[in-house]
Simulated assay, not measured.
Amino acid sequence: MNSSEDFHPNENGWQNSIIIVPTLLSSSTLLTVIIILWRLFSRKRGDKRDAGERTGDARNGDYAVNMGGVYEYPLGAPDPVLEMKQLPQDWRVEDRAVLCVGHFGPISRAVLVGKGEDRCEVILKELSEKCSPGEVQDFIDLLKFYNEVCNHGGVVRMLWCQTEAPPMCLIMEAMTLGNLLLFLRESHEEEMADTPSAVCSITEQDVFSMASQVASGLEYLSGTHNLVHGYVAACNVLIHEDMSVRLCGLGLASVQHRTGSFPTSRAARVPVKWQSPERLREPSVTEKSDVWSFGIFLYEMVTLGAPPYPDVDPAKFPKTLKKNYRMAKPQQCGERLYDVMTSCWQWEALNRPCFTNLLKQLQNFSAEANGSTLLRATDTLNWAEYLRVAGIPS
């Protein structure tokens, strides 16, 4: 009897424990989860705020590609990859003249003076002193890209770099006549003066030669490194007085080389008249979209820098292109060259040739090109009008 009475109170206590203990455990677990989530949320807000302070507003494009990146090699410490490319201490830079302000900072033409007072013209791409840590790392990555990838006659090459003392800079070979688009546009002034110089004398055969060199550089990027350029145009080609040319403007390719993907936000800044149909529909940049742009580049050269689709307003260009509109053959353009152009402008990307095939066509057709008649400018636009018609922000 006693044993039975003892059992009931214990049974009631056990039943209460079954109810109370899980309740307490559930409450404490829920509280712990809430605290963890609150801390994670607070940390993300702080990280986002810090990244915004370091890199700027992404919507305005004022940000480093390497968002909030950490600089692996502080200024003054040697980078093992770039150590052999450091500018020798007994070399100096003279006669610096700023050409423009690029993505990282000022771009200048200068003279490099070495031992024995040897001199050579160079292009300096400098890193701004007001850069973020992410931009510093991006610049280091750009230098590594030039060192590892730009070892081909069709692309501009790095001579030296400076990372162990400010300002950080990339030192590239200079081409005596500079930017091809500006060179072509200046030929308009030569014609108006009716005293064309020998340097500005370009024939259709020269166009084939220069186009082959650019196509060779693009074939190297796509074939050897699986990279795309993203903005194939006369403004991204440099020309020497012997009519040799090299591809430049490789910033988009350098980002793709580092990250494995194409920076669509920066690629969207390319003027629409150089973009392929699929690229206008969605942010897709491939070798075949570069091929489309290469056809526009051929048009630029044979017209001595005329804006593409001169009779189409840039705002209406996508709709006009969708109607299967293509540029007519320029008057001074041979049939062979125009055939190459139109093959680049096939609506379906798969139907366009690759750069290997384009290079073969250009080399085979070059012998048939006109090598005696000088090309003439096909428009009389001033620079401001050119920018407006081409759809390039001034």
Rank of each mutant, 00 (worst) to 15 (best):
residue 150 C to H: 10
residue 207 V to E: 03
residue 188 H to D: 11
residue 146 Y to L: 12
residue 140 I to G: 08
residue 203 T to S: 02
residue 170 L to M: 11
residue 190 E to A: 05
residue 143 L to V: 12
residue 167 P to E: 06
residue 147 N to R: 14
residue 185 R to L: 09
residue 157 R to L: 08
residue 142 L to R: 01
residue 174 A to E: 06
residue 139 F to K: 04
residue 137 Q to V: 07
residue 177 L to T: 01
residue 164 E to K: 14
residue 156 V to I: 10
residue 204 E to F: 00
residue 158 M to H: 01
residue 169 C to G: 04
residue 140 I to W: 06
residue 146 Y to P: 03
residue 139 F to D: 00
residue 169 C to H: 12
residue 150 C to N: 06
residue 155 V to R: 05
residue 196 P to F: 05
residue 175 M to F: 04
residue 144 K to R: 15
residue 141 D to C: 02
residue 136 V to H: 05
residue 200 C to R: 12
residue 157 R to K: 14
residue 148 E to I: 13
residue 136 V to Q: 11
residue 143 L to T: 09
residue 172 M to E: 12
residue 171 I to P: 09
residue 171 I to N: 06
residue 199 V to E: 15
residue 189 E to M: 14
residue 181 L to Y: 04
residue 171 I to L: 06
residue 148 E to W: 07
residue 181 L to C: 02
residue 174 A to H: 10
residue 142 L to I: 01
residue 202 I to P: 00
residue 187 S to A: 13
residue 151 N to I: 14
residue 206 D to R: 09
residue 165 A to D: 07
residue 183 F to P: 11
residue 155 V to C: 05
residue 196 P to N: 09
residue 167 P to W: 07
residue 162 Q to I: 13
residue 150 C to S: 10
residue 160 W to T: 03
residue 141 D to A: 04
residue 150 C to K: 10
residue 153 G to K: 15
residue 147 N to L: 11
residue 184 L to T: 00
residue 203 T to I: 01
residue 148 E to F: 10
residue 142 L to D: 04
residue 197 S to L: 11
residue 191 E to I: 08
residue 196 P to H: 08
residue 160 W to H: 14
residue 185 R to M: 12
residue 162 Q to K: 15
residue 171 I to C: 08
residue 167 P to Y: 05
residue 170 L to N: 03
residue 144 K to Q: 12
residue 202 I to A: 05
residue 172 M to I: 10
residue 151 N to Y: 04
residue 207 V to L: 07
residue 156 V to M: 00
residue 156 V to D: 04
residue 207 V to K: 01
residue 175 M to V: 04
residue 153 G to L: 13
residue 172 M to K: 03
residue 181 L to E: 01
residue 197 S to D: 09
residue 184 L to F: 06
residue 204 E to Q: 12
residue 193 A to D: 13
residue 182 L to M: 12
residue 137 Q to E: 14
residue 202 I to T: 02
residue 138 D to G: 07
residue 140 I to M: 13
residue 144 K to D: 08
residue 177 L to V: 03
residue 164 E to P: 09
residue 138 D to W: 11
residue 171 I to M: 03
residue 200 C to D: 09
residue 180 L to F: 05
residue 168 M to K: 07
residue 158 M to I: 02
residue 160 W to N: 11
residue 162 Q to V: 13
residue 183 F to W: 15
residue 184 L to I: 04
residue 182 L to F: 06
residue 198 A to M: 15
residue 187 S to Y: 03
residue 200 C to I: 09
residue 184 L to C: 05
